[in-house]
Design a protein around this nucleic acid. Structure first.
Lengths: 211, 211
DNA sequence: CCGTTTCCGTACGATGTGTTCGGTATGAAG
DNA sequence: CTTCATACCGAACACATCGTACGGAAACGG
């Protein structure tokens, strides 16, 4: 079904070459000429399979589609069930993800990842009882921003934390805020919130900062 | 001290041209040739002032240095005092910031902005009593990620919220988590999130909250 | 084994980059 | 106003990259 063996071979070589080169020079610095040289593939052959550099990048994106195969959070008890498996998965596919999601990538995949993740987070929150609203969307943006921030920092080697620690940090940072948002009866929050005060104590959660 | 009037003129023209072009075509699509054409400036003149496109971009960054001139948060009562003024400022300097921070920019300024902001946030948290630690740095990453996420979403027109609403959303999302983190003595628990079952419900029931 | 598809290699025009250089004109100082 | 420095122009340059084209060689699938 995958057609010719030569085709598979060529595509694989090109994709691998791009990943290697991104890790070495950063996405922007990689040229098509570099890629075909590293992949040992003719120029015309490259353009027979891909339109440009970005096309190769996205063709590698199937790996990230595993988001959809995550345990359905509606059935799980905890929110953001994607977090831990995600960090674990990233550690396994380290090279690829480092190339695709790190600051060395062009930020293109980053944006795509944020979109996918935003959909997941939004679904989870709605399933948990949040009412769809502009305010919810902003919350989703914050949650996704926090997660992707951690991911970037990790992938770029700015922290040596383990997946478990990252997962814990993520949850510790966002869960309290989300809990508050999920309780519309306690602190009725019309979208017209003033910049003032937020309900002080949500509920003490584990993981103090300085351990 | 700014020297020749011709110099100021040229630099201004070039910077303005780049901003305009980013808004029209996106950072990546803008060429030096485009810039000098729009600015009506000789090629050699351009390279006499800037090394390349990116240099022009960063030269426009003085605007973002206003971070340092923000009201010292140590003296203010509330955390993240930068938030509201930041959103307000962005609305005023809309064109420039949209060009520099939006997804149409190369992500370069974005990274720079995250660095600056991370320093500010970290200082605030330390001043508020957090002990410097790897865990704190992760929290900072989350907070900055959330903020920058909101900023991007806003600048890219994904939300029509007002500065006040964005500020409120930001605070609502991160403040509870930060508050918990600032209380290291209350719940001394090792950050060893169990693989199998994480204690999900700390205070309230699975919060089947709707309305 | 044979027809089809893919690949190679090379060359091409187009576009962008960053530099050089002689001549011009604009600014600032006296 | 004169003088002098220097910033600017404009054109040309060598170089790199892109995307396309084409004929012949090689590998594939049946």
């Amino acid at each position: 079904m995958s057609g010719d063996r030569r085709v598979r071979r060529t595509r694989r070589l090109v994709q691998q070459a791009l990943v290697e080169l991104i890790l070495e020079k950063g996405y922007d610095a990689v040229t098509v000429t570099d890629i075909i040289a590293r992949a040992d593939v003719g120029r015309s052959t490259f353009y027979a399979h891909f339109t440009d550099k970005q096309d190769v990048l996205f063709s590698n994106l199937g790996e990230l589609a595993f988001l959809h195969r995550l345990p359905a959070a509606r059935e799980a008890e905890e929110l953001f069930a994607f977090s831990r498996p995600m960090f674990e998965h990233v550690r396994e596919q380290e090279r690829l993800v480092r190339a695709l999601l790190g600051r060395r990538s062009g930020g293109l995949v980053q944006a795509r990842g944020e979109e996918l993740l935003a959909a997941v987070v939004r679904d989870e929150l709605v399933a948990a009882g949040a009412r769809p609203s502009p305010g919810l969307d902003l919350l989703v943006v914050c949650v996704v921003g926090a997660f992707m921030g951690l991911m970037r920092a990790w992938v770029d080697g700015e922290t040596g934390a383990s997946p478990a620690e990252l997962d814990a940090a993520f949850r510790a940072a966002v869960t309290p805020g989300v809990r508050v948002a999920l309780r519309p009866d306690e602190a009725p929050r019309p979208p017209h919130a003033g910049a003032g005060s937020v309900p002080t104590h949500a509920c003490a959660e584990p993981t103090a900062v300085g351990d």
